[in-house]
Amino acid sequence: MRVDLHPFAGIGWPGRERCGPMRRCLPQLRDSRVGIFGVGSALAPHVSRQLDLLPALVPALEHGSPRERLARRIFDNACIDERRFCIPDFRHGTRKVLYDTLHPGLGRRMAVYRREAPRLAASACEPALKSARVAADEITHLVVVTCTGIFTPGPDVELAERLSLQSDVERTIVGFMGCSGAFHGMRVARRAALERNARVLLVCVELCSLHQRDEAGAGALVAQSIFADGATAVVLGAIRDHDRTLALLGEDRTCLEPGTRAALTWEMRDDGFAVRLSPELPSLVEGRVARFVTPLLDGIDPQVRPAWIVHPGGAAILRAVQRGLGLERDDLASAWSVLRRLGNTSSSAVLYVLEEALARLAVGAEGVMLGFGPGLTFEALRFQRGPGV
């Protein structure tokens, strides 16, 4: 079977190869039953310029050595101006709260996570609720996405108390799904939103700064050059008459790419969580993204370019998406903006991009959210800009 090339897809898509056929019928977005009613975000309190971070994040590098020059080149090429963190440890002259020893144990790292993650998450939920014009006691379901920490009772319980949610709020934690976690959380939240009178609060909170490790390999340097802390939230619900949603949610698609399991890993160690980014990751994304995303473009007017809400996983990833889909840098303007201002905040990053893009999209504009995570997992979600403010 031959599928014609979609003008936004870069290459053709062989119908049943790799991930198989679409499991659900492609919907008309006007029939979509769930929408985003509000979106909010929070910024971690401690900000640092990108190049100022190098000696703090990789202190073992000898000044002027070949490895230090490589690290400086990696940091400089990351296309990031500054990053934000929940701890002050990476700013020169500040008192360290975690990295006062070279190898803080996992227990100390998780103690900081327990203190800081609920606080940052609540700060993202509050503007999301306000944007949605939904009171905290109207929330029926809470979905928390995180991959950078764990404790029990967890951040869901802390958030329920901080936000004064009802005691019978249904809580779910989507854990350790990495940078694609927002898509997994959205899938859980959409199903919950179809329950009668449901209003669902979805929040992604990540504190990547808690997992600095004393490594100077090229892959470790890339990871040290991009990750940061952040939290974003959305409120979802079934669309009723006269509801004014920010975005109407359409078809979604996921694919666990065979043979790519080692491309992106996140492992728990005694001295923190260790991330591994394969140098082949950008080429894997470039070579497979068009095949994956093309089915979601069915029905979009070829003369109208959809909005692309892409996870800002790094400059190399965004360039790979542009090449793979035949897009220009301006097509990913919001993703590049978030990367420049905030770095890669893991699962929360794509919702920063969505928040920025929604402010500029006209009512009725079509869009596609696109992300990647461990597995290697490809995720995408089609949406349409609603009339909400």
Rank of each mutant, 00 (worst) to 15 (best):
M1P: 07
H6Y: 02
G10K: 05
G12R: 02
G12V: 02
P27Q: 04
Q28V: 09
S32V: 01
R33Q: 10
I36N: 10
V39D: 08
V39A: 14
P45E: 14
H46C: 09
H63L: 14
P66Y: 08
R72C: 09
I74F: 07
D76I: 09
R84H: 10
R84C: 14
P88S: 11
F90T: 03
R95G: 15
T101E: 15
T101H: 03
R109G: 03
R119P: 13
R119D: 14
L120F: 02
A121R: 03
C125D: 03
A132L: 06
R133T: 10
D137H: 02
E138A: 00
L142Y: 04
V143N: 07
T148L: 08
E161R: 12
L163A: 03
S164M: 15
E170H: 15
E170Y: 05
R171H: 10
M177Q: 05
A182S: 08
M186R: 00
R187T: 02
V205F: 04
V205P: 02
L210S: 13
H211R: 04
Q212S: 01
R213A: 07
G219S: 13
G219Q: 15
A220L: 15
S225Y: 13
F227H: 11
F227G: 06
T232E: 11
G250P: 07
E251I: 08
E257C: 00
P258H: 02
P258R: 01
A263M: 00
T265G: 02
D271V: 15
G272Y: 06
A274W: 04
S278G: 13
E280S: 08
P282W: 12
V285C: 08
E286N: 06
V289T: 04
F292H: 01
T294W: 15
P295D: 00
V304E: 15
R305M: 05
P306W: 03
A307V: 13
H311L: 12
H311S: 09
P312F: 12
A320W: 09
E328N: 09
W336D: 06
R340P: 14
R341Q: 13
N344C: 12
N344A: 10
S348A: 11
E355T: 14
A362R: 12
M369E: 11
L370G: 13
G371V: 06
G375F: 01
L376P: 01
L376Y: 01
F378P: 00
L381D: 02
P387E: 00
